[in-house]
Amino acid sequence: MKLPISKPYLMSGVLLLLLVWPFLWGGDNAYALYIACLIGIYTILCLGLNITIGYTGLLDLGFMAFYAIGAYTAAILSIHGVSFWLTLPVCVLVGGGVRYLLGLPVLKLRGDYLAIVTLAFGEIVRLVANNTVGLTNGPKGLPRVGEKISEIRLFGWSLNDTIHFYYLILAFVLLAVLVSHRLEHSRLGRAFVAIREDELAAELSGIHVARVKSVAFVISGMFGALAGAIYAHWIGFVSPEMFTFWESVFLVAMIVVGGMGNIGGVVLGVILLVGVPEILRSTLGAKFVDYRMLVFGVVMVAVIIFRPQGLIPSKRRSLELHTPEAE
């Protein structure tokens, strides 16, 4: 696909649009901002999941587990008065650590088997959250009555409005995009893709497959926990029903529809699958609201039939081909 303008200009334009976005909606912007924040959170999540599914080809059907781990860790620490800026790295480390331990037995499995085991892990985390009442307050969620997830403070300011969270989330989305991009075009990122394409050939070309897979797995878990920690502070409430199997499948669907292994594709997938149902909810009118999931399903089936590689397929970068001597 040839863009009418060069990439740096496009990127600057998008960035500018994102920065002024809250002001395009005049006084009544709460709903638009809420959707934008939600899209941002899901973008961080999906960029994380894209590292395992998109780059490394490891099908993970329980990714919400790490979102949950991040959200619960953040909620528990925050209720005890720990600052957001300390909570965040702790959540990322806890998410990465659990992901590492999960990877030790699980990454020996491939394809369908890995999908089933990650699915099971996702359910285990949800059930643990549901049943360890002492720690998580069970199905009633955190915080308990009388407790509060503390506000995020930044340079003496309290972040307590959606617009504040909009910019906070935007900053982390940009960070997630940067990390994904740099990873993609590195020795490690190429090894991810090589493993996706042919694991045995990758090992026999000198890649320590078990280790590289583990790195991919851990980084993606960290993205998940990061998104969860931000979400818990933004919404101020966590409960087990937010982290169902359906949500994990939904994440995979966003990546597949948008374009596996392509950062722009993943972002587009999130915008479509999170944004469109919300827009349909507000535009279809009361009579048709119940049909929005039907419309949504038809769109997804159509995408898979007519564009199985996703809306923006993954594309390899062209490199300079002249050898210095040849010139």
Binding site: D198, G206, L321
Partner: peptide, 28 residues
């Protein structure tokens, strides 16, 4: 057994993996 969806040059670059060492931190 090639990496079908990578370019020819990238396929050969994978061969360099074992003789190079940059890791996550350097890449980021």
């Amino acid at each position: 057994r090639l990496f079908a969806n990578m370019t020819a040059l990238e396929n050969v670059m994978i061969g360099r993996h074992v003789r190079t060492r940059s890791e996550l931190a350097e890449a980021l």
